[in-house]
Protein backbone atom coordinates (compact mmCIF):
# COMPACT_ATOMS: atom_id res chain seq x y z
CA UNK A 1 0.00 0.00 0.00
CA UNK A 2 2.76 2.39 1.02
CA UNK A 3 4.53 1.63 -2.23
CA UNK A 4 1.60 3.04 -4.18
CA UNK A 5 0.81 5.89 -1.81
CA UNK A 6 1.08 8.61 -4.47
CA UNK A 7 -1.23 6.78 -6.87
CA UNK A 8 -3.78 5.94 -4.20
CA UNK A 9 -3.94 9.47 -2.79
CA UNK A 10 -4.09 11.00 -6.25
CA UNK A 11 -6.84 8.60 -7.38
CA UNK A 12 -8.97 9.57 -4.40
CA UNK A 13 -8.39 13.28 -5.10
CA UNK A 14 -9.19 12.80 -8.80
CA UNK A 15 -12.40 10.96 -7.96
CA UNK A 16 -13.49 13.65 -5.49
CA UNK A 17 -12.70 16.45 -7.91
CA UNK A 18 -14.55 14.66 -10.70
CA UNK A 19 -17.56 14.20 -8.45
CA UNK A 20 -17.47 17.90 -7.58
CA UNK A 21 -17.21 18.87 -11.26
CA UNK A 22 -20.19 16.69 -12.17
CA UNK A 23 -22.31 18.09 -9.33
CA UNK A 24 -21.24 21.62 -10.18
CA UNK A 25 -22.22 21.10 -13.82
CA UNK A 26 -25.57 19.42 -13.43
CA UNK A 27 -27.01 21.27 -10.49
CA UNK A 28 -29.68 23.80 -11.39
CA UNK A 29 -28.74 27.35 -10.58
CA UNK A 30 -30.73 30.01 -8.85
CA UNK A 31 -29.47 33.32 -10.18
CA UNK A 32 -31.26 34.06 -13.41
CA UNK A 33 -31.79 37.70 -14.26
CA UNK A 34 -28.82 39.06 -16.16
CA UNK A 35 -30.33 42.50 -16.51
CA UNK A 36 -30.92 42.47 -20.22
CA UNK A 37 -32.93 45.48 -21.33
CA UNK A 38 -36.59 44.73 -21.83
CA UNK A 39 -37.73 47.57 -24.02
CA UNK A 40 -37.00 48.96 -27.44
CA UNK A 41 -35.97 52.25 -25.87
CA UNK A 42 -32.72 52.49 -27.81
CA UNK A 43 -34.32 51.96 -31.20
CA UNK A 44 -35.20 55.57 -31.77
CA UNK A 45 -36.62 55.11 -35.24
CA UNK A 46 -38.63 51.98 -34.59
CA UNK A 47 -42.00 51.94 -36.33
CA UNK A 48 -44.76 50.66 -34.10
CA UNK A 49 -47.51 49.19 -36.21
CA UNK A 50 -50.58 47.93 -34.45
CA UNK A 51 -51.25 44.37 -35.58
CA UNK A 52 -54.59 42.89 -36.38
CA UNK A 53 -55.23 40.30 -33.72
CA UNK A 54 -56.44 36.98 -35.00
CA UNK A 55 -58.23 36.27 -31.74
CA UNK A 56 -61.59 37.76 -30.96
CA UNK A 57 -60.83 40.82 -28.78
CA UNK A 58 -60.05 44.05 -30.56
CA UNK A 59 -56.99 46.05 -29.67
CA UNK A 60 -57.75 49.62 -28.87
CA UNK A 61 -54.52 50.78 -27.28
CA UNK A 62 -51.67 52.20 -29.31
CA UNK A 63 -48.19 51.18 -28.20
CA UNK A 64 -46.16 53.92 -26.65
CA UNK A 65 -42.72 52.58 -27.53
CA UNK A 66 -42.02 55.23 -30.12
CA UNK A 67 -42.44 57.92 -27.51
CA UNK A 68 -39.56 56.50 -25.53
CA UNK A 69 -36.49 57.68 -27.42
CA UNK A 70 -33.86 57.43 -24.77
CA UNK A 71 -30.40 56.51 -26.07
CA UNK A 72 -29.60 54.55 -22.94
CA UNK A 73 -30.70 51.02 -22.21
CA UNK A 74 -33.40 50.75 -19.63
CA UNK A 75 -33.45 47.43 -17.80
CA UNK A 76 -36.56 48.36 -15.86
CA UNK A 77 -39.68 46.73 -17.34
CA UNK A 78 -41.86 49.29 -19.03
CA UNK A 79 -45.32 48.32 -20.22
CA UNK A 80 -45.70 49.40 -23.81
CA UNK A 81 -49.24 50.58 -23.38
CA UNK A 82 -51.90 50.93 -20.77
CA UNK A 83 -54.15 47.94 -21.23
CA UNK A 84 -57.73 48.68 -21.96
CA UNK A 85 -58.72 45.05 -22.17
CA UNK A 86 -58.60 43.29 -18.85
CA UNK A 87 -55.89 40.61 -18.88
CA UNK A 88 -57.66 37.30 -19.34
CA UNK A 89 -56.09 33.91 -18.80
CA UNK A 90 -57.51 30.67 -20.07
CA UNK A 91 -56.25 27.10 -20.31
CA UNK A 92 -55.02 27.68 -23.82
CA UNK A 93 -54.09 31.30 -23.94
CA UNK A 94 -53.96 34.83 -22.68
CA UNK A 95 -55.18 38.14 -23.97
CA UNK A 96 -54.90 41.79 -23.06
CA UNK A 97 -54.73 45.02 -24.98
CA UNK A 98 -51.18 44.47 -26.14
CA UNK A 99 -51.08 40.82 -26.97
CA UNK A 100 -52.99 37.71 -27.77
CA UNK A 101 -51.44 34.35 -26.96
CA UNK A 102 -53.07 31.17 -28.15
CA UNK A 103 -51.83 27.62 -27.59
CA UNK A 104 -52.95 24.94 -30.04
CA UNK A 105 -52.26 21.25 -29.75
CA UNK A 106 -51.69 18.97 -32.71
CA UNK A 107 -51.03 15.29 -33.14
CA UNK A 108 -48.77 14.85 -36.17
CA UNK A 109 -45.80 12.66 -37.03
CA UNK A 110 -46.69 10.38 -34.08
CA UNK A 111 -45.88 13.28 -31.76
CA UNK A 112 -47.64 15.84 -29.62
CA UNK A 113 -47.02 19.26 -31.10
CA UNK A 114 -47.74 22.54 -29.35
CA UNK A 115 -48.08 25.69 -31.39
CA UNK A 116 -48.12 29.08 -29.71
CA UNK A 117 -49.47 32.00 -31.73
CA UNK A 118 -48.49 35.28 -30.12
CA UNK A 119 -49.76 38.46 -31.73
CA UNK A 120 -48.28 41.49 -30.04
CA UNK A 121 -48.33 45.19 -30.72
CA UNK A 122 -44.65 45.79 -30.08
CA UNK A 123 -41.60 43.66 -30.84
CA UNK A 124 -40.25 44.10 -27.33
CA UNK A 125 -43.08 42.00 -25.95
CA UNK A 126 -41.05 39.07 -27.25
CA UNK A 127 -38.02 38.91 -25.02
CA UNK A 128 -35.18 36.65 -24.12
CA UNK A 129 -33.72 36.09 -20.69
CA UNK A 130 -30.38 34.56 -19.86
CA UNK A 131 -29.06 33.09 -16.67
CA UNK A 132 -26.56 34.84 -14.46
CA UNK A 133 -23.01 33.76 -13.70
CA UNK A 134 -21.51 32.01 -10.72
CA UNK A 135 -18.41 33.01 -8.77
CA UNK A 136 -16.08 31.59 -11.42
CA UNK A 137 -17.83 33.49 -14.16
CA UNK A 138 -19.53 30.39 -15.63
CA UNK A 139 -23.08 30.90 -16.78
CA UNK A 140 -25.48 29.09 -14.51
CA UNK A 141 -27.66 26.45 -16.10
CA UNK A 142 -31.22 26.38 -14.94
CA UNK A 143 -34.63 24.99 -15.84
CA UNK A 144 -36.93 26.93 -18.15
CA UNK A 145 -39.51 26.87 -15.37
CA UNK A 146 -37.08 28.31 -12.81
CA UNK A 147 -35.88 31.06 -15.13
CA UNK A 148 -39.47 31.88 -16.08
CA UNK A 149 -40.51 32.13 -12.46
CA UNK A 150 -38.04 34.98 -12.05
CA UNK A 151 -40.18 37.20 -14.25
CA UNK A 152 -43.45 38.36 -12.78
CA UNK A 153 -44.80 39.72 -16.05
CA UNK A 154 -43.98 36.65 -18.12
CA UNK A 155 -46.95 35.21 -20.00
CA UNK A 156 -45.49 32.20 -21.80
CA UNK A 157 -41.97 30.93 -22.36
CA UNK A 158 -39.96 28.37 -24.26
CA UNK A 159 -36.32 27.36 -24.21
CA UNK A 160 -34.08 29.48 -26.44
CA UNK A 161 -31.00 28.80 -28.53
CA UNK A 162 -28.92 27.83 -25.48
CA UNK A 163 -26.34 30.44 -26.43
CA UNK A 164 -23.77 29.37 -23.85
CA UNK A 165 -23.74 25.83 -25.16
CA UNK A 166 -21.62 27.20 -27.95
CA UNK A 167 -18.49 29.26 -27.66
CA UNK A 168 -18.71 30.99 -31.04
CA UNK A 169 -21.38 32.55 -33.23
CA UNK A 170 -23.34 35.78 -33.18
CA UNK A 171 -25.72 36.27 -30.30
CA UNK A 172 -28.01 39.24 -29.80
CA UNK A 173 -30.57 39.26 -27.03
CA UNK A 174 -32.92 42.12 -26.30
CA UNK A 175 -30.82 44.40 -28.46
CA UNK A 176 -27.55 43.57 -26.73
CA UNK A 177 -24.64 41.86 -28.50
CA UNK A 178 -23.55 38.97 -26.33
CA UNK A 179 -21.16 37.55 -28.89
CA UNK A 180 -19.96 38.73 -32.30
CA UNK A 181 -17.69 35.91 -33.51
CA UNK A 182 -18.36 33.60 -36.43
CA UNK A 183 -19.70 30.16 -35.70
CA UNK A 184 -17.12 27.42 -36.09
CA UNK A 185 -17.85 23.99 -37.53
CA UNK A 186 -18.09 22.27 -34.17
CA UNK A 187 -20.47 24.91 -32.84
CA UNK A 188 -23.33 25.13 -35.28
CA UNK A 189 -25.34 23.79 -38.16
CA UNK A 190 -22.60 24.40 -40.67
CA UNK A 191 -22.89 21.90 -43.47
CA UNK A 192 -21.14 21.16 -46.72
CA UNK A 193 -24.08 22.78 -48.47
CA UNK A 194 -24.07 25.82 -46.20
CA UNK A 195 -20.66 26.67 -44.73
CA UNK A 196 -21.91 29.87 -43.05
CA UNK A 197 -24.19 29.70 -40.04
CA UNK A 198 -27.76 30.80 -40.62
CA UNK A 199 -29.34 32.88 -37.89
CA UNK A 200 -32.82 34.24 -37.32
CA UNK A 201 -33.07 37.95 -36.71
CA UNK A 202 -36.22 39.43 -35.20
CA UNK A 203 -36.24 43.12 -35.97
CA UNK A 204 -37.49 45.92 -33.76
CA UNK A 205 -40.30 46.63 -36.23
CA UNK A 206 -41.71 43.16 -35.72
CA UNK A 207 -40.44 41.56 -38.92
CA UNK A 208 -37.90 38.76 -39.30
CA UNK A 209 -35.09 37.65 -41.59
CA UNK A 210 -32.81 34.69 -41.99
CA UNK A 211 -29.33 36.21 -41.97
CA UNK A 212 -26.05 34.41 -42.55
CA UNK A 213 -23.11 35.32 -40.38
CA UNK A 214 -20.77 37.44 -42.42
CA UNK A 215 -23.53 39.18 -44.38
CA UNK A 216 -23.37 41.82 -41.66
CA UNK A 217 -21.42 42.22 -38.48
CA UNK A 218 -23.34 41.90 -35.24
CA UNK A 219 -23.01 45.65 -34.71
CA UNK A 220 -24.38 46.35 -38.20
CA UNK A 221 -27.37 44.17 -37.39
CA UNK A 222 -27.96 46.15 -34.20
CA UNK A 223 -27.66 49.39 -36.19
CA UNK A 224 -30.27 48.07 -38.59
CA UNK A 225 -32.62 47.37 -35.69
CA UNK A 226 -32.02 43.76 -34.68
CA UNK A 227 -33.90 43.09 -31.43
CA UNK A 228 -33.15 39.36 -31.18
CA UNK A 229 -30.75 37.11 -33.06
CA UNK A 230 -31.16 33.37 -32.58
CA UNK A 231 -28.21 31.20 -33.39
CA UNK A 232 -28.81 27.48 -33.44
CA UNK A 233 -30.32 26.36 -36.70
CA UNK A 234 -30.91 25.24 -39.26
CA UNK A 235 -33.32 27.68 -40.88
CA UNK A 236 -36.48 25.82 -41.84
CA UNK A 237 -38.66 28.36 -43.64
CA UNK A 238 -37.39 31.57 -45.20
CA UNK A 239 -39.84 34.09 -46.63
CA UNK A 240 -42.49 31.43 -47.08
CA UNK A 241 -40.15 28.95 -48.73
CA UNK A 242 -39.27 25.60 -47.20
CA UNK A 243 -35.47 25.76 -46.98
CA UNK A 244 -34.92 22.69 -44.82
CA UNK A 245 -32.59 20.39 -46.63
CA UNK A 246 -33.71 16.82 -47.02
CA UNK A 247 -30.33 15.72 -45.81
CA UNK A 248 -27.71 17.49 -43.77
CA UNK A 249 -24.60 15.65 -44.81
CA UNK A 250 -22.54 16.65 -41.82
CA UNK A 251 -25.26 17.07 -39.23
CA UNK A 252 -26.97 13.75 -38.57
CA UNK A 253 -28.99 15.07 -35.68
CA UNK A 254 -31.09 17.17 -38.08
CA UNK A 255 -32.13 14.08 -40.00
CA UNK A 256 -33.21 12.00 -37.05
CA UNK A 257 -36.36 12.37 -35.00
CA UNK A 258 -36.01 14.35 -31.82
CA UNK A 259 -37.99 16.69 -29.61
CA UNK A 260 -37.79 20.12 -31.23
CA UNK A 261 -38.31 23.77 -30.46
CA UNK A 262 -38.71 26.27 -33.26
CA UNK A 263 -39.51 29.94 -33.41
CA UNK A 264 -41.06 31.71 -36.35
CA UNK A 265 -43.11 34.49 -37.75
CA UNK A 266 -46.45 34.30 -39.53
CA UNK A 267 -46.68 38.00 -40.14
CA UNK A 268 -45.14 41.14 -38.70
CA UNK A 269 -45.57 41.02 -34.92
CA UNK A 270 -47.21 37.62 -35.15
CA UNK A 271 -44.73 35.20 -33.60
CA UNK A 272 -45.05 31.46 -33.52
CA UNK A 273 -43.44 28.94 -31.19
CA UNK A 274 -43.52 25.26 -32.04
CA UNK A 275 -42.64 22.62 -29.48
CA UNK A 276 -42.58 18.97 -30.49
CA UNK A 277 -42.37 16.17 -27.94
CA UNK A 278 -40.19 13.15 -28.65
CA UNK A 279 -37.92 10.44 -27.32
CA UNK A 280 -40.81 8.74 -25.64
CA UNK A 281 -41.30 5.49 -27.52
CA UNK A 282 -44.28 5.32 -29.83
CA UNK A 283 -46.10 7.95 -27.73
CA UNK A 284 -43.93 10.75 -29.06
CA UNK A 285 -41.30 10.01 -31.65
CA UNK A 286 -40.23 13.57 -32.37
CA UNK A 287 -39.59 15.02 -35.81
CA UNK A 288 -36.74 15.63 -38.20
CA UNK A 289 -35.91 19.18 -39.20
CA UNK A 290 -37.48 18.53 -42.61
CA UNK A 291 -40.72 17.35 -40.98
CA UNK A 292 -40.73 20.41 -38.76
CA UNK A 293 -40.39 22.68 -41.79
CA UNK A 294 -43.17 20.77 -43.56
CA UNK A 295 -45.42 21.23 -40.52
CA UNK A 296 -44.58 24.93 -40.34
CA UNK A 297 -45.45 25.35 -44.01
CA UNK A 298 -48.84 23.75 -43.39
CA UNK A 299 -49.53 26.46 -40.78
CA UNK A 300 -48.65 29.24 -43.19
CA UNK A 301 -45.55 30.33 -41.31
CA UNK A 302 -43.27 32.72 -43.25
CA UNK A 303 -40.11 32.31 -41.21
CA UNK A 304 -39.22 29.33 -39.05
CA UNK A 305 -35.96 28.58 -37.31
CA UNK A 306 -34.88 25.56 -35.30
CA UNK A 307 -33.85 26.33 -31.73
CA UNK A 308 -32.22 24.08 -29.16
CA UNK A 309 -34.29 20.88 -29.13
CA UNK A 310 -33.80 17.47 -27.64
CA UNK A 311 -34.34 17.41 -23.91
CA UNK A 312 -34.32 21.19 -23.83
CA UNK A 313 -37.62 21.50 -25.74
CA UNK A 314 -39.88 23.04 -23.11
CA UNK A 315 -43.09 25.06 -23.12
CA UNK A 316 -43.98 26.86 -19.90
CA UNK A 317 -47.33 28.51 -19.26
CA UNK A 318 -49.23 29.48 -16.12
CA UNK A 319 -46.77 27.91 -13.73
CA UNK A 320 -46.47 24.56 -15.42
CA UNK A 321 -44.56 22.83 -18.16
CA UNK A 322 -47.16 21.96 -20.79
CA UNK A 323 -45.18 19.52 -22.86
CA UNK A 324 -43.17 16.47 -21.89
CA UNK A 325 -39.45 17.29 -22.11
CA UNK A 326 -37.47 14.11 -22.62
CA UNK A 327 -33.70 14.06 -22.64
CA UNK A 328 -33.32 10.33 -22.50
CA UNK A 329 -35.68 7.85 -24.06
CA UNK A 330 -38.77 7.67 -21.89
CA UNK A 331 -37.34 9.80 -19.09
CA UNK A 332 -39.60 12.82 -18.77
CA UNK A 333 -38.30 15.91 -17.02
CA UNK A 334 -36.80 19.30 -17.69
CA UNK A 335 -33.12 19.78 -18.40
CA UNK A 336 -31.14 22.90 -17.65
CA UNK A 337 -30.53 25.65 -20.20
CA UNK A 338 -28.97 29.09 -20.24
CA UNK A 339 -31.73 31.16 -21.81
CA UNK A 340 -35.42 31.36 -22.55
CA UNK A 341 -37.61 33.16 -25.05
CA UNK A 342 -40.78 34.61 -23.63
CA UNK A 343 -43.76 36.77 -24.31
CA UNK A 344 -44.28 39.25 -21.54
CA UNK A 345 -43.69 42.71 -20.17
Amino acid sequence: MKKYLIAVVYTVLLALFTLYTVMDTFKAGTSTDFDLPRTLAKYTSTPTPVPALTAAPVVTATPSVAASKSETLTPTPTPTATPTIEPTWSADGYIDSNMSVKISRYREYESDIYVVDAVVNSADLLKTAITGVNKRGDYIWDYVSNISNSYDDLIISINGDCWKHKTTGYSIKNGVILRDTYTTASNGFITKEEPRQETLVLWADGSASIVKEGDYTAQELIDKGAWQLFNFGPALINDGENVAKTSFTTVDVANSRHPRTAIGLKDDLHYVFIIVDGRNGSTNRGVTCSQLAEFGMSLGIKYLYNLDGGGSATLYFQGEVLNKPCRKEGKIGEVTVTDIVYIGY
Binding site: F17, Y20, T21, D24, T25, F26, R136, G137, D138, W141, C162, K164, H165, T167, D308, G310, G311, S312, R327, V335, T336
Partner: peptide, 13 residues
Protein backbone atom coordinates in the same frame (compact mmCIF):
# COMPACT_ATOMS: atom_id res chain seq x y z
CA UNK B 1 -20.86 17.24 -20.93
CA UNK B 2 -20.76 17.86 -24.69
CA UNK B 3 -23.38 15.22 -25.39
CA UNK B 4 -25.54 16.57 -22.59
CA UNK B 5 -25.09 20.05 -24.02
CA UNK B 6 -23.22 21.78 -21.27
CA UNK B 7 -19.71 22.82 -20.30
CA UNK B 8 -17.65 23.62 -17.25
CA UNK B 9 -14.44 25.60 -16.98
CA UNK B 10 -13.20 23.17 -14.33
CA UNK B 11 -12.55 20.71 -17.16
CA UNK B 12 -9.55 22.82 -18.17
CA UNK B 13 -7.81 21.65 -15.01
Amino acid sequence: FQIYGTANKLLNL
